Amino acid sequence: MTEIAKVSQLSNQIIDEVERAVVGKRDLLEAIMASILAGGHVLLEDYPGLGKTLIARSFASALGLDFKRIQFTPDLLPGDITGGYIFNRSKNQFELRQGPVFTNILLADEINRASPKTQSALLEAMQEGQVTMEGESLKLPDPFLVLATQNPIEYEGTFPLPEAQLDRFMVKLTVGYPSLEEEKEILKRRRERRQDELTLKQVTKPKQLVEMRAALETVHVDSDLEGYISALVHATRTDRRVAVGASPRGSLAFLKMARARAVLSGRDFILPDDVKHFAVPVLSHRLLLQPEYWMSKQINGDVIRDVLRSTPVPVTR
């Protein structure tokens, strides 16, 4: 079995295991698994009670990763995330007390409820995989992933994430309500197991995930497809409805997510469909609209769909 085939098999085993806890969200779980393989952070924006915390905890269990959760509130301080040095009287010296950011998967719940100063405490961790305290840079565990949530309807007492921080999330996803049949299945499973908690089986270890990520670098990318990605991102910068288009970081996210989708499909090369599949999750949070469109939440998606329609798709062998 090839390395790509092994990674594909393990990845689908992880998704299957998470599906034991999360009903009817296969496409969403595949997108999150692709982002995990690509080494990116995930922003989940949706209503309360749809299982965002359950999804994060389930992936941590199936991947065998350490998991911590922070409930963001207006009075949360940067030190509550990173930790700090505390004086130990018995030893007569300062000791580092690590904050919850020192983990593998960090769930930043309702991230937009914290002040900009506290939100920025995650910037270095998300980009560099380290935290700087008292002039000393401390490495975070590898792998490290931030899975952040925010509520799209309650804006009172919130602080919208700045563009610089939004850009550091590889994808922005929504969970969505379950269908009627899926909701019946949720109730049925809860009744049958006779308890709230569901114990999931560990599929991989942290070291295995690092090796799985390395396998993505072997996926072939045709130069025409690199040009296609560049053309899509460039088109977002010239659309009249957009004030600021996607950055080169968006192009790199496109490349990584396309490779991850190819691996999930068991292929060692990417197709145009791999690029198009993640266009909205990769680009929607990276576009800053002109002021006259600020009140419309649909314009971002419209821009991306128009860009996909107007950009020629390369023919690959």
Rank of each mutant, 00 (worst) to 15 (best):
E197K: 13
A125T: 10
I105G: 01
R249E: 06
A21S: 15
P141D: 07
K188C: 04
E185F: 06
L283G: 04
P312C: 02
F87P: 04
A214K: 15
F169Q: 02
R189I: 05
L43K: 02
V263I: 10
R317E: 14
T204R: 03
L198I: 12
Y47W: 12
I36G: 05
R317I: 11
V22Q: 03
V244D: 12
N88L: 08
E154R: 09
P74F: 08
L232A: 07
V210P: 00
R305L: 13
P314A: 09
R69S: 08
S61R: 13
T174H: 12
A246V: 05
P78A: 11
G24C: 02
L63S: 04
R97S: 13
N88E: 14
R309M: 04
F67I: 02
K184T: 12
E124Q: 15
G266C: 06
D273F: 12
L180A: 14
T149P: 02
V233E: 01
I36Y: 05
A260G: 02
D196S: 14
G83M: 05
K52H: 10
G83K: 00
Q9C: 09
M170S: 04
A121S: 15
D224T: 12
D196K: 13
G157W: 05
A56R: 00
V242N: 00
L37S: 08
I55W: 02
A108E: 01
D196H: 14
R57F: 04
R57L: 10
K52F: 11
P162F: 07
N12Q: 15
Y177W: 09
Q13T: 10
T118N: 06
R193V: 11
K172P: 04
N92S: 15
E110P: 00
R168Q: 11
F67A: 06
L187T: 09
A5W: 08
E181Y: 13
E217I: 09
L288M: 13
E124M: 11
L107A: 07
